[in-house]
Amino acid sequence: MAEVDKLLIQEIRSGADDAWMRFVDRFGGRLQAFVRKKIRDSATVEDIVQDTFIGFINSLPNFDESRPIDSFLFTICRYRIIDHFKKTGRRPDMSSLTTTDSQQQIELPDAIRGASTIYRSGERRRAEENALLQILQQEVALLMENEAWIKLACLELLFVSSTPNKEIAELLELSQPQVASFKHEFVDKIKRQMLRLGVNADLFPELYPDQQA
């Protein structure tokens, strides 16, 4: 977290009203712009931003200062938007499938019972996610540090938005073999690091692109 944000959080934790004013001034605009991407009604947008700030106050005792504030705020905000859409019937209700109890009861259709589909405890699941996250953070940071922007763009489009290789090659002025090469190099590196951390790479289907089809 940036030093200026750390100081602001410390002041808020000490209960300073003016620090809270600075906080809403600093983050209100970006949160409002975020909600406006989803909801047009301005009163609803402001209600959701307000609920986000209240959610932040409630979560503050457990807030991990190693995490960027805006990422934390956007996560709260996203949940408020999901709640809003659930209330207004605009999105499927996922809540019944997200509790620990309900996880024991879900019958999975055969289509998603692959080798990687294994019931695991929440603790184990979090450990696997954290291991992959740690590796990805290091790799992305390294690419940024080396100013390998085109490679980073290529990997992000491949893995985050599943953009086809041909389209990526056109967008980034690469050849298709270059895109494939970036992908293979990245996948190999991630798999090696996961092995080193003792995490089973089989759990992540994207690391086995040939089996995905």
């Binding site: 960027p68 990422s71 956007f74 996560t75 499927p92 996922m94 499938l97 997200t98 309900s102 996880q103 879900i106 999975l108 259709p109 289509a111 998603i112 990687s116 589909t117 019931y119 695991r120 929440g122 699941r125 696997e128 996610e129 992959l132 996250l133 990805l136 953070q137 992305v140 940024m144 980073l152 992000e156 893995f159 985050v160 938005s161 599943s162 991630i190 759990l203 992540f204 289907p205 994207e206 690391l207």
Partner: peptide
């Protein structure tokens, strides 16, 4: 609809996706 339902179930049981971990943590 079936694909959406499958993914909904995958999320609910904690199926990992490298892409979603990347996206959810604002990497990059």
């Amino acid at each position: 609809q079936d694909r959406l339902q499958s993914i909904r179930l995958q999320i609910a049981v904690g199926e990992h996706s490298l892409g979603s971990i990347w996206r959810q943590n604002n990497l990059g």
